[in-house]
Amino acid sequence: MLRIACPWCGPRAEIEFSYGGEAHIALPEAADALDDAAWAQYLFMRTNPKGRHLERWVHTHGCRRWFNVVRDTASERIAAVYQPGAEPPEDAR
C-alpha cells in the first residue's frame, strides 16, 4: 500500500485517496471541431507506461483536493507531488 504525501495534509495511507488516471489530459478547447478519432484519442487513450507516470490523485477521505503525482509504475517510487495545472518539478521530470 502506497504512502502518498498529500500537498496539504502530509503523508497518508493510500486508502485515504482515490486514483484519477493519467494527468495532463486537458479538455480540448474546441471539442466540437475534433473528428471522432481525435475525440476518442482524448477520451480513451492513455500512455500506460512501465516506469515514470504522471497521474492524478484526490485525497477523498481528507481535504478532498486533487493533485498530481510522479510515480514509477514499476518500482512504485513516488518522485514528487505537485499542484494540478502545474508542470512536474524539475528534479522529477
Binding site: 482515490s18 484519477g20 486537458a26 484526490v58 483536493r65 486533487w66 494540478p84
Partner: peptide, 13 residues
Amino acid sequence: LAWLEEWLQTEWP
C-alpha cells in the same frame, strides 16, 4: 460531489 470538485479543481479552477 466528487465529480463537481474534480472539474472545479482540475479543469476550471
